[in-house]
Computed example of a mutant assay.
Amino acid sequence: MAKTDFIELLRAKFVSHLETRSKFTEPQNLYEPISYILNLGGKRLRPVLTLLTTELFQGDSDQSMDAALAIEMFHNFSLVHDDIMDDAPLRRGKTTVHEKWDLNTGILSGDAMLILAYQLFENYPPELFKKLTSLFSKTSLQVCEGQQYDIDFETRDDVSLEEYLKMIEYKTAVLVAAAMQMGAMIAGASEQDTIAVYEFGRNLGIAFQLQDDYLDAFGDPKTFGKQIGGDIMENKKTYLYLKSMETGNQEQIESLLHLYSIKPKDSSSKIEAVKTIFEESGAVEATKDAIEMFTQAAFGHLEKLKLSDANKKILRQFGEGLMQRTV
């Protein structure tokens, strides 16, 4: 079976499991929003990685289905609360939970999702339960810390590249890493292998987010799925912005500071002006270099895994596919 067919099979298996396990009862106003957000679609990247890692370490992905669902449950819980904080009207092209119901329902349903995620780990034997929940607690807290860093950065003008990388590591990469480590744990992989697969996922997650920064400014509007220049319009201090501030000349820095202090009605001229500075300051090339560096670091950890060459190749192809995306 081809790698893509196998991954699609795991994705279909997971979606079927999610649909079965997301049928809740009363009170309707607590559980309906949970079913709604869980069934909005999305790539299901994290839970598929849990199932895939279990299979690659000679385990049975059926055994990691509840851990995969816990990861997806937590991810969607964080989206519900993020949307409240951002006052976002849409998620995956559909009305956000707090807009469709109300603010209190969004908060309470999100809280319930976090509890439901923990409950799913209760289906594992005591020793494994302890390992999984310990990793889950650490990761969940890091995601919250990453979100707080992101909020703090909005009002700070002295954010460093190191701080930004830590923020995206916590907000995005650690959940990808934990999803893979859980899969390996459930398959009974050695501690050395579970750590190496975590590092593979963490580095790949950072590269993925840096590429998202790049595509937001320079992606193809036909395939990206979001409005190009969204981060620029919102004055977000992405890797591109911070690198421009670090390597740009005085004129470029002053222009960038001015452009990021305004919100014009016609944003197209602002977006183009900022993109020009990103290119001329060397930030675009530096961002591409950083994406490549973290991708190669991920592949370095992949080589340490005690897996067959065929199974290593599946993970490598998965990583390469993720990094060659245009969406």
Results as ranks from 00 to 15, higher is better:
residue 158 D to W: 00
residue 303 E to P: 09
residue 298 A to V: 06
residue 140 S to G: 14
residue 112 A to H: 02
residue 128 L to H: 07
residue 50 T to N: 08
residue 278 F to A: 08
residue 292 E to L: 14
residue 107 I to G: 06
residue 170 Y to N: 13
residue 163 E to G: 14
residue 167 M to F: 05
residue 65 M to W: 06
residue 82 D to K: 01
residue 76 N to I: 01
residue 59 G to S: 06
residue 320 E to I: 12
residue 261 S to E: 04
residue 295 T to G: 03
residue 13 K to G: 11
residue 198 Y to A: 10
residue 122 E to T: 10
residue 134 S to K: 06
residue 149 Y to I: 13
residue 40 L to I: 05
residue 87 D to G: 11
residue 243 K to A: 13
residue 306 K to H: 15
residue 118 Y to W: 12
residue 29 N to S: 08
residue 275 K to S: 12
residue 240 L to D: 09
residue 63 Q to K: 14
residue 3 K to M: 13
residue 170 Y to A: 11
residue 232 I to K: 00
residue 318 F to T: 14
residue 237 K to Q: 15
residue 98 H to A: 07
residue 293 M to H: 14
residue 39 N to V: 08
residue 85 M to A: 07
residue 280 E to L: 13
residue 97 V to A: 02
residue 62 D to W: 04
residue 289 D to P: 08
residue 146 G to W: 00
residue 264 P to E: 02
residue 218 F to S: 01
residue 55 E to R: 08
residue 43 K to S: 10
residue 11 R to E: 13
residue 249 N to K: 07
residue 173 A to T: 06
residue 8 E to A: 12
residue 161 L to P: 06
residue 284 V to I: 10
residue 275 K to D: 10
residue 190 S to C: 02
residue 137 S to P: 02
residue 242 L to A: 09
residue 190 S to L: 00
residue 45 L to G: 03
residue 178 A to W: 04
residue 129 F to Q: 14
residue 31 Y to M: 07
residue 41 G to C: 03
residue 44 R to P: 09
residue 130 K to R: 13
residue 238 T to K: 09
residue 255 S to G: 02
residue 6 F to C: 03
residue 169 E to I: 04
residue 20 T to I: 15
residue 33 P to E: 01
residue 323 M to H: 10
residue 306 K to E: 15
residue 108 L to V: 08
residue 36 Y to N: 07
residue 283 A to E: 04
residue 60 D to E: 15
residue 82 D to Y: 02
residue 170 Y to S: 12
residue 248 G to T: 03
residue 168 I to T: 06
residue 22 S to R: 02
residue 204 L to I: 11
residue 27 P to M: 00
residue 225 G to S: 03
residue 32 E to V: 08
residue 102 D to K: 09
residue 140 S to E: 04
residue 103 L to D: 09
residue 263 K to S: 15
residue 40 L to H: 05
residue 298 A to H: 01
residue 226 K to V: 10
residue 308 S to W: 05
residue 15 V to M: 05
residue 183 G to A: 02
residue 265 K to A: 15
residue 42 G to C: 10
residue 104 N to K: 12
residue 47 P to L: 01
residue 133 T to Y: 01
residue 179 A to E: 04
residue 128 L to I: 12
residue 234 E to C: 09
residue 96 T to D: 07
residue 19 E to P: 07
residue 200 F to Y: 15
residue 306 K to W: 01
residue 221 P to D: 05
residue 230 G to A: 08
residue 53 T to K: 01
residue 269 S to T: 14
residue 123 N to L: 14
